[in-house]
């Protein structure tokens, strides 16, 4: 039975043929594991003994007031900022603190930045082409040819993000919301195991927000998704589990209802409003 199954699953038959597509070891549960992470900028502790665990296939929302350290946390995970101390593991095998940005990206962590950054001088199609998972060393990139399969994949993602009609236009002339989607599309092209999405709906219309929510929830399960967002309505509409960050550490964690009735969370948000 299992042999038959594995035979049916053709790419598994000769598994030495598979160039180790998913070296990430998630047998022990979490796909991302942060322990006692701290980082300070000129004495200011932006992240303070942060502990965070994301399970494989989870959709996690992270909220918190301005300056809580949400973006800095993503900087640490993606290798942009080195923490002063602490541990950051991807699965149970990869210590992210020993890797640089491209290595981490290749490993399967994709990131959408808070401020959408697309390559403005390139077309929408070319933006997705560059993002596609491929051999990204210099020579293979120089001689790379776009296969029909890759073209199909790009068109598929173009449809998912609803930018088919903008395919050959410069990314620089897209609207803000469209740039956000293009960014998400670029993330999807990399087929990441873990998506870090920083404020995906900032500047979007109600309708655009709804589509973005559908898109993100449809990804969870196959991929793990971490969403940082200020818009409470949006978080409520997609969230299963919410983590509240405050002054660089976790203040509360649980369902949206649990979290929003937590007096400490209320205080932090009310304190900000007053």
């Amino acid at each position: 039975m299992t042999i038959l199954q594995s035979l049916a699953n053709r790419d598994r038959v000769f598994d030495f043929l598979i160039p180790d597509p998913s070296p990430v070891d998630v047998r022990h549960g979490p796909i991302l594991y942060l322990e006692d992470v701290s980082v300070s900028f000129d004495g200011f502790k932006a992240i303070n003994d942060l502990n965070l665990t994301i399970d494989d296939g989870e959709l996690r929302c992270i909220i918190g007031p301005n300056g809580a350290g949400k973006t800095t946390m993503m900087d640490i995970i993606t290798g942009k900022t080195r923490p002063d101390h602490g541990q950051v593991w991807f699965g149970s095998r990869h210590n992210l603190l020993t890797m640089n940005e491209p290595e981490i990206a290749t490993l399967g962590i994709g990131r959408k930045f808070q401020k959408p950054t697309v390559f403005e001088a390139l077309s929408v199609f070319e933006n997705l082409e560059l993002a596609m998972s491929a051999d990204k060393r210099v020579m293979p990139t120089l001689v790379a040819r776009l296969s029909g399969e890759a073209r199909d994949r790009i068109d598929e993602v173009l449809e998912m993000i609803g930018l088919q009609t903008e395919r050959d236009r410069a990314a620089g002339i897209l609207s803000h919301g469209q740039k956000q989607w293009l960014e998400i599309g670029m993330l999807l092209m990399q087929r990441p195991r873990l998506l870090l999405v920083d404020e995906p709906v900032a500047g979007m219309t109600e309708q655009e927000m709804e589509r973005t929510g559908e898109l993100l929830t449809s990804l969870a399960g196959k991929q793990s998704v971490v969403v940082v967002e200020h818009d409470m309505g949006f978080v409520r509409s997609i969230a299963r589990k919410v983590t509240v960050l405050h002054q660089g550490s976790v203040l509360a964690e649980g369902s949206m209802d649990q979290v929003s009735s937590d007096p400490r969370v209320v205080e932090v948000y009310l304190g900000e409003e007053s």
Binding site: P102, A105, T117, A121, L130, R137, V138, T141, L142, Q190
Partner: peptide, 28 residues
């Protein structure tokens, strides 16, 4: 006009972003 050329333009306009896509910008 190769894909590498587009990586060049990408790194010219948004270097950090290009790195996050997995390109070794310094080698390019």
């Amino acid at each position: 006009s190769s894909k590498l050329g587009r990586v060049c333009v990408a790194s010219r306009d948004a270097e950090a972003r290009t790195r996050f896509l997995g390109y070794r910008v310094e080698r390019v």
